[in-house]
């Protein structure tokens, strides 16, 4: 059936073109947001306001998840390490897993589904209810006034949330290993401190979370601004934000890890 084959090839081509076009639009929008960030710097209270909605409201989920992830790591790590008689290394295990990987990645995934989706839905609804058009008619650029402050609030929040997640995780690991199981507190901390390096582990984890912050919020604001101005359009855009940014986080994580820890 050559006709069907040709149709199939055409479909693939069409989808590829659409995908590339959308990627181009997203990149252009991202640059536009950066270009119009002047107002966010000059009127920083706009960003502060969004920091509340993006950062403060994400705190609970970050703190609780961090605590539990750390507790599980402590428990599992202890179970495995005590077979080799090195249960005092549980502090190292918990801290390294959190600071290098789980802190930035899990915090970013939670951030994408908590704050990213909220940003998309809010911008999408503002578009659907003509608030963005109204702003444009009042000679106020919606990208500068609405999008840029949300973007920067996300970029600022992400590393802070990831750090809070890691600290809560270390505390959770400490609770389980030292308080509940009875690993020596001194060796728990000293093993951790002698094996976690500031530059290689903590700084790299911090850099990772900065990248994730940019990726998640860039996807969220683009999807919101680009959504169809209908109820289905906004809900579809919200779903796409969570899916796309989660994939972007995991993909970026691999690339960044390969660059940072290569040869170690």
């Amino acid at each position: 059936m050559p006709k069907r084959i040709i149709a199939g090839i055409q479909k693939t081509g069409h989808r590829t073109i659409e995908g590339v076009r959308r990627l181009g639009q997203a990149t252009r929008f991202f640059l536009l947001v950066l270009l119009k960030s002047g107002a966010s710097v000059r009127r920083f209270n706009l960003v502060v306001r969004e920091l509340y909605y993006v950062g403060v409201l994400s705190l609970i989920i970050i703190v609780v998840s961090g605590l539990f992830v750390g507790m599980v790591l402590g428990l599992q790590g202890y179970e495995t390490l005590q077979k080799y008689g090195s249960e005092s290394a549980v502090g190292t295990l918990v801290a390294l897993s959190l600071v290098r990987e789980l802190g930035p990645v899990v915090a970013a995934l939670l951030f994408a589904s908590r704050a990213g989706s909220a940003i998309t839905a809010e911008i999408g609804l503002m578009k659907a209810t003509e608030q963005l058009a109204a702003m444009g008619m009042m000679a106020v650029d919606p990208v500068a006034r609405v999008v840029a402050p949300r973007f920067w609030a996300g970029v600022i929040s992400m590393p802070l949330l990831a750090a809070i997640f890691s600290v809560m995780g270390v505390f959770g690991g400490y609770l389980v290993a030292v308080v509940f199981i009875g690993v020596d507190a001194g060796s728990f901390w000293s093993q951790m401190q002698s094996n976690v390096d500031f530059r290689i582990d903590i700084l790299n984890g911090f850099i990772k979370s900065c990248f994730f912050g940019v990726a998640v919020t860039a996807v969220a604001v683009f999807e919101g601004y680009d959504s169809l101005p209908t109820a289905e359009g906004v809900s579809g855009a919200t779903t796409r934000t969570v899916v796309t940014s989660s994939l972007a986080i995991l993909g970026l994580d691999f690339i960044l890890t390969a660059f940072m820890f290569r040869g170690l």
Partner: peptide
């Protein structure tokens, strides 16, 4: 154009008030 729009006002169909 933005300077011109400051001299214009537009009332949208359902008001388009900023909900936040």
């Amino acid at each position: 154009l933005f300077a011109m729009r400051r001299k214009m006002g537009m009332l949208f169909q359902f008001g388009a008030l900023f909900t936040d």
